Simulated scan of single mutants.
Amino acid sequence: MYIVIVGEEGGRAGELQLALQDFGLDWKVDWLSGSGDAVALPADRRIDVVVSDMQVGRMQGAALLEQVRTLHPEAARILLLDRGHSSDAMQALDIAHRFLRKPLDASELIEAVESVQELRDLLTNPTLVQTIGLVSSLPPPPKLYLELERLMQDPDVSAAEIATLISQDPAVVAKVLRLCNSAYFSAGRAITDMRTAVTRLGTKILQRLVLTTEALGAGTMSPAEREAMQERAFRTSRLASQLLTGPSAELAATAALLAEVGKLLPGVNRGGPDDSGPHYAEAGAYLLGLWGLPMPIVEAVAYHHRPGAVRMSGFWVPGAVHVACALVSDLPLDEEYLRATYQLERLPEWREKAEKLAAVPA
């Protein structure tokens, strides 16, 4: 693993080296101070990760990472932010894969780089890495969803606080009000304020709705195609959450929401007979990994069309997402996989669940 760190004070090199030794990691790290209008990145070897300060000499970190995207598309791009300047990240959402806080923390860097390595161990297709690396404008991370996730970690959070956060995005507000006033949730009384809507829907459904609106709201699809994808994702998520229990059910629900996110990327195989390029499932999983979503979700998205390729035994999140996607979208089921995981006899029960969900609004 070869890492180039640009602009950050090299005085922290000793701390990072000690941390690498503690973790038993044999990484090569080069620190470049950076000055003037240009930074001389090594051109004679593969770079796995580039970490850049927000300002490197007279060059902005985002501009440097733009060069990295062109010259080293295989490299993960990490931008360092000063505390209190998180708003600056908005200008670099299309450039940086990850954001870390300054001063650089060795453990945070190791965790970020390890997750990239784990993702690449999962998705080893070099064409995929090149394809995603060269996309000029990736869908940005679901900012509102991630903020909502952090807010929900507070056990004392109120419906009013959640409503205030959600109200920042008019598109999400419209979706929330539309859903909570649908026949499935309305109970005969119209809802017009976000605080009551949050209480009626519940936090889990709200989180999924925010995620579908943000993550599946980009791309070049027509409004009708995008709406169809979002509703299909919501149905698939609801079914996937019923196939497992406990925390696994929530992982499956989130992964199912994002199973088709790769279709928003150019140059991917969307499943058509004449399509080429990396499969949209793997491309979507790679994108989610760059966003920093948990590996079980990334893995489930990558393998939802071929669950037998997962490197674990038993029926878990990838299997649940595969079944949910197949039943909701009328796609082929891998019955051999279900037989191998002793789940085939549950298929009639799952079909019945899918039929019941199809009978109510998405």
Rank of each mutant, 00 (worst) to 15 (best):
M312T: 12
P141R: 11
E282V: 10
M1D: 11
A358H: 07
G284P: 00
R235I: 05
G34E: 02
M194H: 04
L146W: 04
P126M: 15
D53V: 02
L144K: 06
E15H: 08
M194I: 06
P307F: 04
H85K: 15
L138Q: 07
R238L: 09
H305S: 08
A358I: 00
K263I: 09
K175E: 12
T220N: 12
A300H: 01
I47G: 12
I297C: 01
I110C: 08
S86F: 11
G308W: 04
M229P: 01
L201T: 01
E66C: 08
Y2Q: 13
V328G: 01
A197V: 05
R208I: 05
V268H: 05
E8V: 01
V68A: 03
E345A: 14
K143G: 09
R101M: 14
L264H: 03
G262I: 08
P332H: 07
L81M: 13
R69G: 05
P307Q: 06
L93D: 02
D275R: 07
V261M: 07
S115R: 13
D169W: 07
W31G: 00
I132T: 07
L123W: 05
E345T: 11
P273N: 13
Y184L: 10
V323H: 00
I162H: 00
E114D: 15
H85E: 12
P140M: 11
